[in-house]
Design a protein around this nucleic acid. Structure first.
Lengths: 340, 340
DNA sequence: GATGTATTTGCAAACGTTTGCATTTTTGTT
DNA sequence: AACAAAAATGCAAACGTTTGCAAATACATC
């Protein structure tokens, strides 16, 4: 590893006896250069372990081919960063971005304070931003959008916004979940999650709608606000039962992790699932079917979603306008609920 | 967002009526510049939403302040990318790297083919590489190490290698796990995992040692090779019981996810845990205590490990030699095993 | 062989920072 | 007031690519 005399484009050009422009074009597969020349130069580059200096080419082309992905965490608990669903999204985004010739710069809202557009875009660290999660306030997002930086957000696509939001049809998800429980015979269905949060709010709407349709007026006591972690869900459900007994026979959980917490709280009290209480989750994380009983859930297709997010971002990078997209959800019936 | 006349260092300098060198130094907090000047220039930059072009400064300084983190996936299943433990490590690394002024470029072995050192380091995409997981063959890693690129690997620190490996005391972990089961009265303990894999092999060694100490010769039939996913574990355990009956009364699983799969297979057959079979996992992922029963496990401290990995990497970036580090593990007793 | 047109290459100027060195300004000493 | 030393600033040359334009070469046509 001779550090001091790292091979450069100019060096390679001298080696080949051509100009740097020719080598540059050859390595970028520019058809201006004769095919044979191109190939022999590419071979030469390979032999000599040459690789283009990206700092230089980024400076020259004013393009980084990097996308910043920001995990927009709501609370301060490190916990939430380990939500398998969000991390799955990161993994899938990485895949899709790579396929499109982009790399993924990972960040999270705890670390990156201040102006995201400035920090990532003006500074030439990245060409665009994908934010996972709308968070509670959208001020930061609005600022980014206003700056004109290419931006796509995973969140509630129905929310009023001046940027492109990709997200599930949460209302439908909440509706399907609730209806499924109703069909299984549940009468008093608990909504476990925070309706203040945009996406969860939509799910709550669907939940309420299904109840109304079934002529079961929604009851405020049947909504139990709760963070999106299993630990909190476990505690909240335990607490609720302690205070009020088993006042429900079904649970619509706002994520699989929340469902897992509820599951445990119930099982510890020897409450039978699904006979005494039916539980349905949201997300369909990989381990959902490994819970005991296997978890019925509303599936969000992260792979497809990632593809759509990247598409919408690429559009903006090409100067076109992007739009919010609503993704389909799907009821996955397993063992934690009764079938009708 | 006036795109065509983006503010540059020269522009800012003109605005302030000083030279670019002064502004550059001021923004980098160089004490060569008078304190007041520095502060007023920093304020001016803030007012004008100026931020340094990193492509340019990286080119000039030959330093990126970026670290590439590569998830070294063993198999082709997308599954393994969603192992909560590995993703937790990524999250923790992100945190530590940020605290040290570095950013995290995420990658995985499926996407980045060929020469990692060339791709990331010579190309000036990153200053160093952290690889999570040694994989089955270490050819690629050896190549990176030989190239002289700053490199730290999460894996088996006892493995022979010409690069710095940070990892748990897996042998001790396997030993503690097995001993704990023995103390709980288990006589025929199953090792669930692939001893061919470096880290798992160490755990298997510890397992064998504990058995020997207890005068229970190790039995080859009691080692059940198995991928590191819960689904495979679930299938393998189910299969084994189907073929040979319940020939074990304890399981040492090589990860919590594997334990989860085993757990389910057993529960489906109404085998009582921990009375009929004790199960102990590895990792202590966030949801381990939410399994039912709460999972006894060997904890790996990812936060501390991330800190150590970054330390070892920074050493190399400063021209010092790095060393392999063995991290402590800890037995976390919960409900899936009997206490002595 | 002359001419015109395609094809292939090279020249040289950017891109926006940082930094060694020279220069200017300030401060302190006699 | 003169001078030296210290502190603060500026000049200009890099860093390694890409690319518009000009130049050179190859090929075809008469």
């Amino acid at each position: 590893m001779s550090n001091e005399n790292k091979l450069t484009l100019a060096g390679l050009a001298k080696l080949a006896g051509v100009s740097t422009s020719t080598v540059s074009r050859a390595l970028n597969d520019n058809p201006l250069i004769k095919k044979e020349t191109r190939e022999s130069l590419q071979a030469l580059a390979r032999e000599n372990n040459f690789s283009l200096n990206r700092a230089a080419s980024r400076l020259r082309t004013q393009k980084t081919n990097v996308i910043a992905v920001i995990l927009n965490l709501i609370d301060d608990t490190d916990q939430s960063i380990s939500d398998p669903f969000l991390l799955k999204v990161v993994g899938d985004l990485n895949q899709v971005l790579n396929q499109n010739g982009y790399e993924l710069l990972l960040s999270n809202s705890h670390m990156t304070h201040g102006d995201w557009a400035n920090y990532f875009i003006s500074s030439s660290r990245a060409d665009g931003i994908i934010v996972i999660g709308q968070g509670k306030d959208t001020i930061e997002l609005d600022k980014v959008a206003k700056s004109g930086a290419p931006l796509v957000v995973w969140g509630d696509p129905n929310a009023e916004s001046n940027y492109a939001v990709v997200g599930s049809n949460n209302d439908l998800g909440g509706y399907l979940a609730t209806k499924h429980l109703l069909e299984g015979g549940c009468k008093r269905i608990l909504f476990l999650g925070d309706p203040e949060h945009a996406e969860m709010g939509e799910r709550h709407k669907g939940y309420t709608r299904a109840l109304k349709e079934a002529k079961l007026g929604s009851n405020k006591d049947l909504t139990l606000p709760c963070d999106i972690t299993s630990k909190v869900a476990y505690e909240k459900v335990g607490e609720a039962i302690l205070n009020k007994g088993l006042f429900f026979d079904g649970i619509v959980a706002t994520s699989d992790m929340v469902a897992l917490g509820a599951l445990k709280a119930l099982k510890e009290r020897y409450i039978n699932i699904p006979n005494d209480v039916g539980i349905i989750g949201f997300d369909d994380i990989a381990m959902a079917e490994l819970f005991h009983p296997a978890l019925t859930t509303i599936k969000q297709d992260t792979k497809l979603a990632s593809k759509v997010m990247v598409e919408q971002l690429l559009k903006q990078l090409n100067g076109q306008a992007a739009e919010s997209v609503v993704m389909d959800v799907e009821l996955i019936k397993r063992k934690s609920t009764l079938s009708n």
